[in-house]
Amino acid sequence: MRIPVSALIGLVLTGGFLFVAIFAKWLAPYPIDLAVGGVWEGPSAQYWLGTDTIGRDILSRLIYGAQVTIFVALASSVLAFSLGAFLGFFAAVQGGWIDQTLSRGVDLMMAIPSLIVALVLLSVLPLNLTVLILVIGVLDSTRVFRLSRAVAADIAVMDYVEAAKLRGERGNWVIFREILPNAMSPLVAEFGLRFIFAVLFISTLSFLGLGVQPPLADWGGMVKENKDGLIYGKSAALLPSAAIAALAISVNLVADWILTRTSSLKGGRGG
């Protein structure tokens, strides 16, 4: 199997980010919330990427920030996936009023921009990681629902599904043993895209001050803390910005590759 260069770069970078996120505790040279140097110091041998708005080591915060950002994004995309895919398959298999109710509900949720819904919800909900994961996951599950319902509707009319139903298998069997294995490949590529969406979403919320709260740090929050320095030519806010962009682009490259690979294997069902 030949992997194109772009996908290879994406895989290596994504793997690197995951490694940093998992082993943050051992990799970070300084604690997350300790002012160790002066305000907005430039890069030095002691502080490789300089210090931030109150003198904390930026490299350490970036490393811990990777952990928080990736954890929240991963948890909410897993939630979005389990919820969206299960309901999508369920709607496609059951059809009738169940399908109608679920589909119209999803239409309704998608008629309002996700950011606006999130802002309305976060104006009354407490701001903690669980709430953020739930909000992002549920909002994002609508897109997974649409995709998996469409994919499953194609599969649900296949002979083997019909055979399983005639055998008298129950709904769960049909969903997990007949439809899921055949719908896997388009869903895997979609997972990458949903993960990117979650990364951008949590970063945007944190940037607006409505996401991850101190003492925890995530990349969006770091941009917010250091943004005032930009006017004086201090580039501290650009580092977490670049990290967000790099993560999004590398996952995108991998997802792109999976998408083209599966669609050529499956005769075009990958879209």
Partner: peptide, 16 residues
């Protein structure tokens, strides 16, 4: 590339 950037990231690069 610009699709992969959230609005505020693009904004700060432009500002800087």
């Amino acid at each position: 590339t610009t699709i992969s950037l959230p609005e505020f990231v693009a904004a700060y690069f432009v500002i800087y």
